[in-house]
């Protein structure tokens, strides 16, 4: 019965689709519209049936899986090893084996890192003093002069102020005042 339904649906689809094209080809629009509607209906019906069939199959599969799952899981749990001896690598059957190589390597790496950190801290503390003194010397060279470059109005009136550097006086012009 199901096969007959699918055969009828397929036949309807093919026939209506073909006739729709033929009618369009012949400029018979009303006929094309009619068979186009049949084609559309058959297409929607077939598509829905396909989707429902797939859903039904999935549903059956899920139901079968649900029935079968508990014994399988239980069986697997029971067949699994109960407990493995801890730190098996620390108790090699053969003392010549180097199974502890990697833990030693990791431990050595940690120790080396600690030593390196300590060295870095000591070296930083020792070098900081010298570096700071050197930086203070450099900054002193570029610091502003203690006396202002341009004398104040009072100093200009008194005629006793002005930069001592002759080149700087030329650069600043009359506002630098006249040397006393």
């Amino acid at each position: 019965m199901r096969a007959v339904s699918w055969a009828v649906a397929t036949l309807t689809l093919v026939a209506s689709g073909g006739y729709a094209l033929v009618y369009v080809y012949r400029w018979e629009w009303h006929r094309a519209l009619l068979v186009g509607l049949i084609f559309l209906a058959a297409l929607i019906g077939s598509g829905t049936a396909l989707v429902l069939r797939r859903l039904g199959r999935l549903e059956r599969r899920v139901a079968q899986g649900a029935d079968r799952a508990p014994p399988t899981v239980l069986h697997r749990l029971r067949s699994a090893p109960v407990e493995s001896p801890p730190f098996r690598w620390l108790r090699p059957p053969d003392p010549d084996r180097s199974s502890v190589f990697i833990p030693f390597l990791i431990g050595g790496g940690v120790l080396l890192s600690a030593v390196a950190w300590l060295v870095e801290r000591v070296a930083g503390a020792a070098a900081r003093t010298g570096i700071e003194e050197e930086l203070a010397d450099r900054l002193r060279e570029v610091a502003f002069p203690a006396a202002p470059l341009v004398p104040s109005a009072g100093e200009v009136l008194a005629g006793c102020a002005g930069p001592e550097d002759a080149g700087l006086r030329v650069l600043l012009g009359p506002s630098a005042g006249t040397p006393g």
Binding site: R26, W27, E28, W29, H30, R31
Partner: peptide, 12 residues
């Protein structure tokens, strides 16, 4: 002519 033939043969 094609269009007229189609129109006359159609189910108008």
């Amino acid at each position: 002519r094609r269009e007229l033939r189609g129109c006359l043969s159609d189910l108008r």
